[in-house]
């Protein structure tokens, strides 16, 4: 009998909430008809529920709208600093259910990235273009500038040379100025 009562008491909350299946609900109802102890438990649970609602309603009824709204309006008017917004965003994005998906997704992406070489041999070549010597030239301050960069040996050569195209037109003498390093 005691065991039955314990089982019934463990179901009482869900029964009061209307969350039990039809057969279990009927079982609880039948038990309550002949058990004073479980009826007392039911009454306590009901009082617990109603007391909580009434105490919260009483407190909320004392809250005036004007001061409440003043606080909300002030928050709306204030522009939050970028770092606070970033934290808010991160909290929203990294909430536990999303995080549960995000972690395996990041692992899969990392593994896929690491195994790309097997499927696309030489794909790194496209990303490592900086290993090749790159030549850029810029006109500036009456000089031509040639830039030779070689990242593998970390060598940069800047080549400045004068533009003698105009002089050639007026002078027959060969240009003697060599490159200046």
């Amino acid at each position: 009998m005691t065991r039955d009562c314990e089982e019934i008491k463990s179901l009482l909350g869900a029964w009061l909430d209307g969350e039990l299946g039809a057969s279990e609900a009927a079982e609880v109802r039948l038990h309550l008809q002949g058990c004073a102890s479980c009826l007392g438990e039911k009454a306590r649970l009901e009082k617990l529920q109603s007391s909580l609602k009434s105490v919260l309603e009483a407190k909320a009824s004392q809250l005036a709208f004007e001061p409440f709204w003043a606080g909300v309006r002030q928050r709306i008017a204030e522009e939050r600093p970028w770092h606070a917004r970033l934290i808010d965003w991160a909290r929203a994005v990294l909430s536990p259910p999303r995080l549960a998906w995000a972690i395996p997704a990041v692992i899969i992406i990392l593994l896929a990235g690491l195994s790309l070489e097997q499927f696309f041999p030489g794909w790194r070549w496209a990303l490592n273009r900086s290993n090749l010597a790159a030549v850029e030239s810029i006109d500036g301050h009456g000089f031509n500038v040639a830039l030779l960069r070689e990242s593998k040996t970390k060598t940069t050569v800047i080549w400045l040379f004068e533009n003698h195209e105009g002089e050639e037109e007026t002078s027959a003498e060969p240009v003697s100025g060599g490159p200046a390093f």
């Binding site: 909580l52 919260l56 309603e57 407190k59 909320a60 009824s61 809250l63 709208f65 409440f68 709204w69 606080g71 909300v72 928050r75």
Partner: peptide, 27 residues
């Protein structure tokens, strides 16, 4: 806000107990 502020405050107060905290979180 005028329509729902009390209901929101009730829920938050039930969880936080402290009126000032509940007010802050509801706002």
């Amino acid at each position: 806000a005028a329509k729902y502020y009390r209901r929101v405050f009730m829920v938050v107060l039930g969880m936080l107990h402290h009126q000032e905290d509940a007010m802050e979180v509801a706002q």
